[in-house]
């Protein structure tokens, strides 16, 4: 039954570490990247890792998919099947992921239109300027920060123009 000539234990290790690795890659991507579109992609990778982990939770060696077909439909033998619950859960969580990613893309489109940038730091800086303006607070906190490290937000119009020229 086993299509891969491999020690079951070793394969299981590989699967677990693979799933955890995907999660780590995804989370590291979200934390380390500055491009907000890439952050969403990294989030998708991390979600794939979580889903893979769920599938592995229901996996067992030599078992078949939990669908009665052909012979099994006559005998109704369900003893040699993998756990169907994690598969249903994965179906659910994939759809949840799709919804969240679509919403994230819509937000990215709007952010790019308004702020003209996809860089998280610039978006954050523009947002803080807007928040401070609407709260009628002087930008005291950023004035206290050491200069130089934090790029000053460029005004939206010029950046929008630049983005269009590219």
């Amino acid at each position: 039954m086993n299509p891969i000539e491999m020690n079951p234990v070793a394969l299981q290790w590989l699967l677990y570490f693979g799933a955890m690795g995907l999660i780590v890659i995804g989370i590291a991507g979200v934390v380390l990247h500055q491009n907000i579109f890439r952050m969403v992609l990294a989030l998708a990778i991390a979600e794939a890792g979580g889903n893979l982990l769920l599938v592995i939770a229901g996996f067992r060696f030599g078992a078949v998919a939990p669908i009665l077909q052909d012979d099994a439909l006559q005998t109704l033998n369900t003893s040699n099947m993998v756990d169907p619950v994690p598969q249903a859960m994965v179906l659910t969580s994939i759809v949840i992921g799709v919804g969240i990613q679509a919403l994230a893309l819509a937000l990215i489109i709007r952010i790019h239109q308004r702020y003209g940038t996809l860089n998280m730091r610039e978006v954050h800086a523009c947002m803080m300027v807007d928040i401070n303006k609407s709260a009628a607070v002087d930008d005291l906190l950023s004035a206290q920060q050491p200069r130089g490290r934090r790029p000053l937000p460029s005004p939206p119009e010029s950046t929008a123009k630049r983005a269009n020229n590219e």
């Binding site: 060696f61 939990p66 009665l68 099947m81 756990d83 619950v85 179906l91």
Partner: peptide
């Protein structure tokens, strides 16, 4: 290591055909 314990999964595999009657057991879940 080894197979994860299967509590509700096993119960569903045993009873789903009787209770729901779908050939695709994932669908019955």
């Amino acid at each position: 290591l080894g197979d994860a314990p299967m509590l509700i999964g096993a119960a569903i595999l045993d009873n789903a055909v009787k209770e729901v009657g779908a050939a695709n057991l994932v669908t019955s879940v």
